[in-house]
Design a protein around this nucleic acid. Structure first.
Lengths: 198, 198
DNA sequence: CTCGACAATGCAACGCGTTGCATAGTTGGC
DNA sequence: GCCAACTATGCAACGCGTTGCATTGTCGAG
């Protein structure tokens, strides 16, 4: 049921078309919750039927089918009710770790290129988040509650990416040296990275 | 398709019954991949039909229905094939962040107890991981490749929990002070936590 | 012996996520 | 005018995860 509530949240921030919502899920909300346009339209249909939202043709739509959705009082009430509930922890769930563990059984497979690729992807994301932070959360700005919360959420993404980057650095250290030689324990030189230094 | 491969991996590590596999998914593998016993049995059935695994009555089962599953060569080949493929990044996806963002729109709701509860749950997990690390990865042990990989995987869980604990500390700092008074910016005293110090 | 808890297995229904595919309108470059 | 790319929407099939429920056997305490 979280997608419906993510959509209610987004629509309360700004009434939008389905397409704009989908784009927002590719971007800002997509940093911590993902959904495809098929899901979004499906959910919008359900929510409209439930009386939580209402749609009308976009005034600037011309002959397109563009409609704008807005939240009704019942939708707002539902969101308030839901937001006060407890949420389950988001468990760590990463297919790559399954592959890594498979490597330990059937390997050695050469995982280093994939480790490097994934580290780079995480670094890209961190860079993007940092750019957003610089743009939207300049330190001299007066923090409103809303801005503080949004910044916290962005920081969640930042810490997530940073943690993974540090882990991939260590993994590359540990698994990357295998191709060089059969390492003796004394030449392993594992420098405990950030995960252990915390 | 990752569950099948997680099961292949687990069975190659140790031939097991469905029940033992389910318990392992509640514990070690469950640190980075989760599955219910219903899923596991469903998948085991498919994999046996596909010729990847074989089951036979457990020699110590007595009159119970306990069966032991083992991987066939076709299953091992499939795992090797799959493990060498690229895996998508695990996106951050956390319902609580949706709730937090909802709070910014319809709040203030009192999120502090939930923040504290979740921080405590993460701390519990970290404690458990640290105990496992001390038990299974004592520094003086000669590291084999397998042990190094397993330790890396455990460290993934550790860094994940640590990152979240630090984030919750900051969130409690930011949102916890609201109940005290209407804070002026000069008394906000946000100490940039670990996420920014990295 | 009874019963609750645990071991061991498994069917089924449903919702959500994924993927494929589709239609229709607009815009701008060639 | 043509066409590719984008805007805007949406149906459908399928697999996976979740949840509920079920049966059968064992064990140990009362």
């Amino acid at each position: 049921m979280s997608l419906a509530h993510a959509l209610l949240t987004s629509l309360l921030e700004q009434a939008s078309s389905g397409y704009d919502l989908a784009r927002r899920f590719d971007k800002s909300i997509g940093h911590f919750w993902q959904a495809t346009h098929q899901q979004i339209y499906r959910e919008l249909g359900r929510m409209e039927k439930a009386g939580w939202i209402r749609s009308e043709p976009d005034p600037e739509a011309g002959r397109t089918r563009k409609r704008t959705y807005a939240v009704l009082p019942a939708g707002r009430n539902e969101l308030m009710r839901w937001a006060a509930e407890a949420a389950p922890l988001a468990d760590l769930r990463d297919e790559f770790l399954v592959r890594l563990r498979a490597d330990a059984v059937v390997g050695p497979l050469d995982m280093v290129p994939e480790l490097a690729r994934r580290r780079a992807l995480h670094a890209d994301k961190l860079r993007a988040y940092r750019a957003i932070e610089a743009r939207d959360f300049a330190p001299e700005a007066e923090p409103t509650r809303k801005r503080r919360i949004h910044h916290l959420i962005l920081k969640a993404g930042i810490q997530y990416e940073q943690g993974w980057i540090a882990w991939y650095d260590e993994a590359l250290e540990v698994l990357g040296e295998e191709g060089a030689a059969a390492p003796a324990a004394s030449t392993l030189s594992v420098t405990p990275g950030a995960p252990e230094a915390r």
